[in-house]
Amino acid sequence: MNAAAEQGTLRNDLIASIPSLRAFANSLCGQPALADDLVQETLVKAWTNLGSFTVGTNLKAWLFTILRNVYFSELRKRRREVEDGDGAFAARLSVHGEQLGHMHYEDLVEALGKLAPDQREAVILVGASGFSYEEAAEIAGCAIGTMKSRVNRARRKLSELLGLEPDDEFGPDAGGRVLAAVEPPAGVS
């Protein structure tokens, strides 16, 4: 009975973790369909390996660890298949040309996709998921110092890619570009 109750609680905790897992997966791979596959595989692995989870420890970190391992092993597999970069990887998997979330984040998703995967993971875990450097390092299986430097490099690179300067936090004026694009060329009647 005790075990069954414990299992029920864990099941509820698993369900409660799904939104975070999906956010993590989407941020990591930038592909909603692939992200949900990653989450599904994570849940199956978590369920069949619940015995290796120690009650009272951080379930979310445990699940994130499983998901990132699934993702990185998938990434390695794809890289072995086609020896090219993230762009081609993403293009191959972008079957329906789906956009992640709202158009508002398109440039951010694109910039994330240009980061080295370990830097992308680092900045998501610490900068978005709210893990401490220590927790993030444990999830990624690296030293804390390595995690800190990955996060810093990722933030710097994202700033560059998004065209963010200290005096211009909103970058190029997207609205201006749109207006310029729809303006008819002079002389066209």
Partner: peptide, 13 residues
Amino acid sequence: GADAAVSRRLKEM
């Protein structure tokens, strides 16, 4: 500012 803006956008997304 750039770092803060990156962090804010990331967190919002």
